[in-house]
Amino acid sequence: MSRLAIIVTICVVVLFLGSWIFKALQAQDAGVDHYLLRGFLVTCSAFLTLAILSFLYKDNPIYKFAEHLYVGISAGYWMSQGFWSTIVGNLIPRLSQSLSGFFKQPYNAGEWMGGFFYTNWVFYVPVIFGVLLLMRLSSKYGWISRWALAFIVGTTAGLQFIRYMRSDFIEQISSTFVPLLVDWQGIGHFFSNLSLSATGQLVAMVSNWIIFLGVLCGLIYFFFSKEHTGLFGKASRFGIWILMVTFGASFGYTVMGRVSLLVGRITFLFRDWLGITS
């Protein structure tokens, strides 16, 4: 360890302890239960916030620590969450009355359909698939896990196939039918109200033409089996221009939202931790 690293470590530890004591005393004054723990936790979140922000300067041991801590805790968190909500919440009440009693879950008795098919039987299937999936851990029978993967991939491929056929294909076609001509009421009316936000006839017509041609040229840009030359190439060029303008607009639109996220974090540091502003 270099001298600098030792100094930095000592500073961090001292600051941490100082903040802990200070926040604990504050909590005690406010009459909070477990004030020592509370002080520790608030200090933790402040230090972790700073540790992540330090990444902006460069990768450093404190960031690395926060990152590994976060990966471990979040992986464990989602694991338990999945166990309690899906296995205990959804599966066990369908499989065993005594187990659901043990986990304090209401047992779902299921029903006999047509007198020969018991609905709870279907919940053994995912268990079987799940066990097949876990066979991956064995080097000899690992290939069996493909059955489970095939089930998931097949089911969702079918689902997405039909879903996107409707939402991204059929329903988009008819929305490209826009009025391209205007109801002619004289030249004065046509050129009136030229502001972009108003609904003057000229502006509305040009906008509709841009939407219409923009969609067509955008689609032409995505043609793979024809060289983009000549008129086709020009259309494709216009298509990518429209795409780029859109990407720019969308980029600009997001900026403000991101800045407000940062303001939120800074508020936490200054108000909730340091108590400087209110």
């Binding site: 992540i52 990444f55 976060y70 992986a75």
Partner: peptide, 14 residues
């Protein structure tokens, strides 16, 4: 890595 969006980002950035 982890099932958490930003945990994943943090680790991949690392």
């Amino acid at each position: 890595l982890t099932n958490s969006q930003f945990g994943y980002v943090g680790a991949v950035n690392g």
